[in-house]
Amino acid sequence: MSREHPLKRVERGLKVPPRRRLDLIEEVDADVRALQAELERRGRTPGQARRAALRQAVPDDRALADLEARHAPPLGRWAGATGWIDRAVVLGVALAATLAGFIAVIAMYGSGVPLVPAFVIWPLAVVIAALAANLSWAVIQLLVHGDLRPRQRRLLWTRQAGLVVAAVALGALGAAWVGRVTLAPLEPQMWAEPMWEPPVLEAVARMATVAGTGLAAAVFGLFGWLALTPRLLTDEEAERRIARFFAQARPHLALASDPSVDNEHRGES
């Protein structure tokens, strides 16, 4: 017999904001307990009463779909009604990534830094596109489902941190490369003349531009991170309460192993 709490399936299957999930599982749990007590008072055994209460109150897939449609954010309701919910996520992410990557390439090629090698420009563009994709994925999930599960949230932060580090590293690598190419020929001159001579300053400016591009990408990633953090912290609190709810719940009779549940699945209002 499965020892999973019967409401765990509900919590797992319901794609709505954590606060709504918490409210629903608490509401259903309170009703199941009260209904079980009432049925026991009427002469049912605890097991029978428990199963009857679970059968009556725990939402099935159809009820979950109705609840999801009711509590999804407006964009999610619209996307759900048009059947574009999955495509909306994929299209949004693809669009954001393409646009960010395109802008990054144009900006870098148009920045007057012809010496930046392609092995820096293109990976940096990919990193910027990936940052945009990662952030837009999280934002669209929140807009469509209102929900980013703990595992998805950890994935978001891990990817974002990795990409921010990669952007800074690529910027530094590009700057070092530009420095090597532009400053090496000037080395004899640098010892002979003051540092602020135009060719040296120009080389330093080029290095700073390349390093700045990497830093700008990192800042873009960090800003996105900061923009999402307040919302995700609020959700985190609800998630903690959901985890506490299940941790405190005593082992329950499982629905899945009870054949009478499916047999009585028909004929309800």
């Binding site: 259903v28 099935d60 159809r62 009820a63 699945h265 209002s269």
Partner: peptide, 18 residues
């Protein structure tokens, strides 16, 4: 004659509340 099974009551309650 009428009964609410499998949590079908909750979408109705939440809709009426909304």
């Amino acid at each position: 004659a009428f009964s609410f099974q499998h949590g079908t009551l909750y979408p109705i309650l939440h809709r009426l509340e909304a």
